[in-house]
Design a protein around this nucleic acid. Structure first.
Length: 375
DNA sequence: CATACGTGGTA
DNA sequence: TTACCAAGTAT
């Protein structure tokens, strides 16, 4: 890692901000610096691309225009607004933070990064972003862009996948913050990171700050940032149950923590767990069918009959750490089946449009329709 | 500290 | 298809 003199820092600030004044992106959340607008956009932008966020942001602001509206929103409406964006705890934390603002802070925003950190879902990056953009505080906002940009500018070779590395970057960036325009500085770094100083195929030869890019000048730009790789998603085989009653389908509410927390999906069984719980190898469909019936009875006192394996191709869905491979299974409910132990509900076709579903469930709906199992 | 947590885009 | 990336946070 290299050090810059005060005069070089000054020159960098001027070059960067002059470029930003000319070339900054025209984004919906940049129409003003209202903390509510900055906050919602920053949460949506976590691990999510600008192009994906724009339509969600516009709809969200139309539906929940103020902190109070968000605090008082129905959770089902909120989740429907967030449907498809992923990382759904972001939406739930958003509402919790709105309620914190209304009740704990009487509607008055904390103006410092430390104060903002008290709000649900606001970590070190988002606190820095809101504090600098909305409140003019000279604090860094260290996101993936900042890691990438400054690792190249200063040849910082600490592993950005390690949590402790954040403090190294925060300290380095803190010394560069211009006292008069910290918000613009942080946003300029992000624009730089998404234009010239990209992760793949950077165009540093035309970058406005190429003269400051030490890694580029040394011809070692491809060595930065240093980042250890993440493990590949683990394959998981599942069975999804399509249980019908007329035109309705039986859906199961997932636990309130963990993957797709709180969402309604087809009941799903992990094939490996089913196998482990079985007394014999599940080689025949009749064996699988028997194991499935026992599973439903053990788990929910749910009696299933006429279990059929559809044979259609598997539905696959990949998360950050899991790869689901799902086979659809049609089952009938025994005529005297007792649903009182089943934490589920019958879903009408009309309710499908009103309810928020995770992407994997919409894929399962699509497959069920293709197999003429619904609608 | 390492891992869980969604989805869509690109090479 | 795999691999990796995209304005991270909670536990």
């Amino acid at each position: 890692m290299i050090e810059w003199s005060p005069s070089k820092i000054k020159a960098f600030q001027e070059t960067l901000l002059a470029w930003y004044d000319k070339e900054k992106r025209d984004l919906p959340w940049r129409r003003d610096h209202a903390p509510y607008h900055v906050w919602i956009s920053e949460i949506m932008l976590q691990q999510t691309q600008v192009q994906t966020v724009i339509p969600y942001y516009e709809r969200f602001m139309a539906q929940f225009p103020t902190v109070e509206a968000l605090a008082n929103a129905k959770e089902s409406d909120l989740m429907k607004a967030w449907e498809g964006l992923g990382y759904y705890s972001r939406a739930r934390n958003l509402q919790r933070a709105a309620q914190q603002l209304v009740t704990d802070h009487h509607g008055v925003w904390p103006t410092t990064a430390e104060g903002l950190r008290e709000l649900a879902g606001i970590g070190p990056y988002t606190a820095g972003a809101i504090a600098s953009i909305a409140f003019g505080q000279p604090v860094p906002a260290v996101d993936g862009n900042a890691f990438r940009v400054f690792s190249r500018l200063l040849e910082i070779d600490d592993d950005i996948a390690k949590p402790k590395t954040r403090s190294v970057f925060e300290a380095a960036i803190q010394r560069m913050m211009p006292a008069d325009r910290p918000g613009d500085f942080n946003q300029a770094i992000m624009d730089l990171g998404s234009s010239y100083m990209t992760a793949k195929n950077p165009d540093s030869a035309h970058s406005p700050v190429k003269a400051f890019n030490q890694a580029y000048l040394d011809g070692i730009e491809d060595q930065f940032p240093v980042k250890t790789k993440k493990p590949r998603p683990v394959p998981v085989d599942l069975l999804a149950l399509v249980i019908r009653r007329g035109d309705q389908l039986l859906l199961l509410k997932r636990p309130n923590s963990g993957l797709l927390a709180g969402f309604w999906t087809f009941p799903m069984v992990d094939v490996a767990e089913l196998q482990a719980a079985s007394e014999r190898d599940l080689v025949l469909e009749s064996d699988l069918s028997r194991a499935l019936q026992k599973w439903a009875m053990d788990e929910f006192k749910l009696a299933l009959t006429a279990i059929g394996f559809t044979g259609g191709q598997q539905v696959t869905h990949t998360f950050t750490h899991r790869k689901w491979r799902i086979s659809l299974v049609v089952a009938d409910l025994a005529v005297d089946a007792d649903l009182s132990y089943f934490p589920g509900q019958w879903l009408t076709p009309k309710a499908v449009a009103k309810t928020a579903f995770p992407k994997v469930q919409t894929k399962l709906f699509d497959q069920a329709r293709a197999l003429k199992l619904m609608e």
